[in-house]
Amino acid sequence: MKISIITVVYNGERYIKDTIESVVNQTYNNIEYIVIDGKSSDSTLSIINQYKANISNVISEKDKSMYDAINKGLKIATGDFVLILNSDDFLVNCYVISEIVNLIQKNLGFEFYYGNLSILKGNTVSKRNTFQCSYSEILHSRHGTFIPHPALFISKKIAQKHIYNLKYLYASDFDYILNLAKTYESKFLQITVTVFRSHSESITSSGKINNERKLILKSNDLYKTNFIVRSFLFIRIWLYYKLIQYVNL
């Protein structure tokens, strides 16, 4: 089974080395690594080129947005499953792709799989557990937390058929996950995949995604649900999420 990993980056010299090394040091040897650089003006491309022998495809050209760059990667990816690895995140250890492949092979028949994240904030790492989640639960949570994009493996079928909506500059991954959950059956894998780096420069920390997220929720008819019902579902799903951080269910 081939796994394609796509990293898109623009002026990411601060963290890109950690991201690349977490991929090229994997023990699993059937990985296609694609790096899309948006014509960085810092030393990003120089750092990427240090690892070029271990990267399947490097593209450096201007793009419309990070999601435009991801779409470029999806068009050329040839793996059975594809992971989008952010340029400031990194795989949790050198065995994780091998472990993911073993879990997928034991649970064949799904078009996308996802696992858990760890969050790195400063020098502190904390695990974030998630669970098998439906489209309705993702929608009523109003957030992409429960199917984390940096721990999402999509099939070749999805990669060839679905692209990210360039209408959204910051929250297209949330839109993408909702569309997948609405269309396909998924499988949650009880494994931590990626370390998500939380820092002041990240899009998540900037708050830029909030307005776009509201538009995405509206386009999925969230607000047509009775206010009391959707409020109840919102509270229930987040209470469950909080609970599983402390109790292994």
Rank of each mutant, 00 (worst) to 15 (best):
residue 62 K to E: 14
residue 119 I to K: 11
residue 20 I to W: 12
residue 77 A to P: 07
residue 62 K to G: 13
residue 31 I to N: 01
residue 82 V to D: 09
residue 190 Q to P: 00
residue 133 C to F: 10
residue 4 S to D: 04
residue 55 I to G: 07
residue 36 I to A: 06
residue 17 K to M: 02
residue 92 V to Q: 02
residue 120 L to Y: 06
residue 83 L to C: 05
residue 220 N to Y: 13
residue 54 N to G: 00
residue 242 K to F: 15
residue 214 K to N: 08
residue 69 A to F: 13
residue 101 V to M: 06
residue 169 L to Y: 09
residue 213 R to K: 06
residue 123 N to T: 13
residue 80 D to C: 04
residue 44 T to D: 15
residue 69 A to N: 06
residue 106 K to D: 11
residue 206 S to M: 07
residue 88 D to G: 04
residue 194 T to G: 00
residue 199 H to D: 11
residue 188 F to A: 03
residue 169 L to N: 12
residue 60 S to L: 08
residue 20 I to V: 06
residue 221 D to S: 09
residue 1 M to W: 07
residue 221 D to G: 00
residue 51 Y to K: 00
residue 128 R to M: 14
residue 198 S to Q: 13
residue 221 D to M: 05
residue 74 L to Y: 09
residue 226 N to Q: 11
residue 10 Y to P: 03
residue 229 V to K: 15
residue 247 V to A: 02
residue 77 A to M: 04
residue 10 Y to Q: 03
residue 82 V to R: 05
residue 221 D to I: 10
residue 48 I to F: 11
residue 244 I to T: 03
residue 136 S to C: 02
residue 199 H to A: 06
residue 75 K to A: 07
residue 165 N to I: 08
residue 146 F to D: 14
residue 51 Y to I: 05
residue 83 L to H: 09
residue 213 R to N: 07
residue 69 A to W: 13
residue 16 I to E: 11
residue 233 L to K: 15
residue 35 V to L: 15
residue 203 I to R: 11
residue 225 T to P: 08
residue 232 F to W: 15
residue 93 N to H: 12
residue 119 I to W: 14
residue 170 Y to K: 02
residue 89 D to M: 01
residue 95 Y to Q: 05
residue 15 Y to G: 10
residue 128 R to E: 14
residue 144 G to I: 01
residue 154 I to R: 01
residue 137 E to W: 03
residue 21 E to M: 12
residue 10 Y to N: 12
residue 172 S to E: 07
residue 14 R to G: 08
residue 159 A to R: 00
residue 80 D to M: 00
residue 92 V to A: 04
residue 52 K to A: 12
residue 20 I to Q: 14
residue 65 S to W: 09
residue 237 I to R: 07
residue 129 N to A: 00
residue 130 T to D: 12
residue 241 Y to D: 12
residue 239 L to S: 04
residue 67 Y to H: 08
residue 168 Y to C: 02
residue 191 I to L: 15
residue 132 Q to D: 14
residue 60 S to K: 01
residue 47 I to A: 08
residue 244 I to R: 10
residue 110 F to V: 00
residue 239 L to R: 10
residue 139 L to P: 01
residue 43 S to R: 12
residue 151 A to W: 05
residue 225 T to K: 12
residue 230 R to H: 03
residue 16 I to T: 09
residue 202 S to M: 10
residue 143 H to P: 01
residue 24 V to D: 03
residue 66 M to N: 05
residue 187 K to G: 01
residue 70 I to P: 03
residue 44 T to V: 08
residue 23 V to R: 08
residue 25 N to E: 15
residue 87 S to Q: 14
residue 120 L to C: 07
